[in-house]
Design a binder for these strands. Structure first.
Lengths: 222, 222
DNA sequence: ATTTTCATATTGTAAGACAACCTGTCAAGA
DNA sequence: TCTTGACAGGTTGTCTTACAATATGAAAAT
């Protein structure tokens, strides 16, 4: 029983809210975040806001251009590729660990998340897809028992949310993604780390390919 | 010819200086960084300092305890182990990449760094050892051609500096470490990614073992 | 049309102020 | 003696105000 009272600093809440706004797609790559506007939106003072912005900058969720202020970064294809490279090194490990230690409750939550994902795919609801994927990964990461991997993958995943939204809209990608994630879940719930790892590798690889495809398509249309 | 005038923000300089102060061992785990003191040390205002502190907090170089302020974190054995786990996933890759693309100049710089390391080992100069190791890794990371791996390993390495200092002081560890790093360099300069990777794996593994040993020894003495 | 100038908007930085909170000390009461 | 309560000092959390420095875009001049 946890009776701890926890007062959150204004700064911390600001970071959380802005992070949510960015990863949910409310702010989009290229958007400028004018300080005074953000202050009124968040209802906080400029010094507090600026502290929050520095935190987000260090997380790479925003870029602060000197004398121009914060903007939501636009990932280049190369940066995206690098993000997937590193995901490829960490995510399989996380899935393997999760396969060896995830609780029944965590596995059920993953199943719920994937069901929600499938529903969102059917109804072509991009926001819900992202949310469901997010929740699926949250469960994997929190159940993998490795704080650092959890934290690093969390920030990495936050950075690619927008990309995922784009690549999910590619024809057939969402369905494929669902299959791949169900495969991961199957091996996790079976307690098979090796299989979970290979399934994760496949998933990240495919996700990367889809993202790269999304870039090519964008170039063609622009 | 680069004539660019780059004015650094006060905040950015503060972050750099404080990061240097932390990773060089000027501040030690457990130390409190009182804001007003830091302000006078750095010659900046409190808002600017606090922005800098938030950046360092996001890098995990400091921990900001609510209503108590920033302190240099004391790594638990488990946190240390996790840091080495992730190093183990990234560092071999970085070395392999470096083996396939490092320039002659970079390799020479690595050699220089290791020579300096050996000198520092002989004279038992802990600070110089850290500095030389740091410079060795800087060369590997900047020559590996992967920005993200470079950045992530940089922050990871910054977090374990103090640990390395402690484990280097273990009998014989510095010499072993030197051998392992020379092995990595050998394979990088030979352009052999696979061999560089295995050498890196061995090095991280041994470094991890040494660090764990340092923890046990500390427990025994405390 | 190109360059220059200028006004506006925005960021960078500082200073001052005060409430909230933690810590340790000391006295009062059980 | 031990616990509790109160208090003081130090530190952080936050806001307000202020102003200099810089970027942007439009108007003016060549």
């Amino acid at each position: 029983m946890d009776l701890r009272v926890s007062t959150q600093s204004v700064q911390a809440v600001a970071v959380r809210n802005m992070r949510e706004a960015i990863t949910s797609g409310f702010f989009r790559p290229g958007d400028r975040l004018v300080e005074t506007e953000m202050c009124t939106m968040l209802g906080i003072s400029r010094p507090s806001l600026r502290e929050a912005l520095r935190s987000l900058e260090a997380e790479k969720l925003i870029t602060i251009v000197p004398n121009r202020g914060p903007i939501i970064p636009i990932l280049t294809a190369e940066e995206a590729r690098e993000l997937y490279d590193v995901r490829m090194m960490l995510e399989p490990e996380a899935c393997a660990l999760s396969a060896s230690r995830a609780s029944e409750a965590a596995i059920n939550a993953m199943r719920e998340a994937l069901r929600a994902f499938d529903v969102a795919v059917k109804s072509e609801d991009a926001a819900s897809q992202i949310k469901a994927t997010r929740s699926f990964y949250d469960q994997i990461l929190s159940s993998c028992g490795h704080r650092l991997i959890e934290e690093m993958l969390n920030t990495l995943l936050a950075r690619v949310t927008f990309l995922r939204m784009k690549s999910m809209s590619l024809a057939g990608r969402a369905e494929k993604s669902s299959q791949e994630m169900w495969a991961i879940l199957k091996h996790i719930s079976a307690g098979n780390p090796a299989a979970a790892r290979t399934a994760a590798v496949r998933h990240v690889k495919k996700a990367c390919e889809a993202a790269m495809l999304a870039y090519e398509k964008n170039e063609a249309t622009s």
